[in-house]
Amino acid sequence: MSAAPESAGLAGSPPPGKSGMSDRWFSILLIAPAMLITLIFAILPLIQALDVTFRMGDLSRGKIGDYVGLTNYRIVFADNQFWQAGWVTLKFTVVAVGLEMILGVAIAFLLHGATFAKGITRSLLILPLATSAAVTGLFWRYLYDTQFGVLNWVLGLLGLPEPNWLGDYTIALWSVVLFDIWQWTPFVALIALAGLQALPKEPFEAAELDGASKWRVLTTLTFPLLKPVLFLVLVLRTIDCVRLYDAVAVLTRGGPGTATETMTFYLYRTGLKLFRMDYASTMAVFFLYVMLVAAVFALTPLLKQFTDRAKEA
């Protein structure tokens, strides 16, 4: 008898409870702490950064100065190094994420079909992820070393050319990409593997009964069903690559010259080496804007898909 009013209270319009608080206000109360933290640690700094973009902000002069209108935006948009850093970031992201997705999914399929050593392989895959890029980057810097590095030692034994991995400006960026692939391909593989293992069996059994080829099963069943998971990994990896800093800081410090200077590294250099918080904030705000626009385009179909599924459920 007592269940009916409670159910009605949850599903229908919210009659005030004994405490006089509606469900709507109760919900707001529940998310309030999270919103407060977001406000203090994300929104307010963002507003301040936005404010600094319109002011003179040479921090080494002791304070944030007067309003200068859109001057900082004009200077940043006319800065070749800023656009060059953007181009480096784009190249890095496209190549690294592309290769990580291909290799990660391939490894996931191999592991999914594996009949032995599955558990230990999965554990080994976690290793590169378990250490920070600052530490593994240092390790890779020694691997890449032209004098004492293992890579060139092996290449030398095989009689192959020994590249200057981090000193040759034509290949330094790809050396960083290689490091990123080593570190993050397992992440893609593990998520894709989890997705594969969670796929419903019925459609595949039906397809098998219908005599569908493996390729057809792959293209019409596996990938479409796996799409939300892969898309999520793609978005996460893209965001991570776009804000790449640690690997560059440890491996190349943006060099040789500016060959591996990503947007985040250039932002760091502007803000914390030159202390031009005005330029750095302007870059950061522009960077955020681009990322938001890209995220909206990228995530809309995914969110729609999730919403539709929730409604269906």
């Binding site: 000193g167 400006y169 943006g254 060099g255 040789p256 010259g257 500016t258 060959a259 080496k273 030159l274």
Partner: peptide, 20 residues
């Protein structure tokens, strides 16, 4: 001086590496 000192290696090293 500090800011100049912290910046000047970038073009100098770019030339050393043959980038410019």
């Amino acid at each position: 001086g500090a800011k100049i000192y912290n910046t000047m290696q970038i073009p100098l090293q770019a030339a050393a590496a043959g980038q410019i």
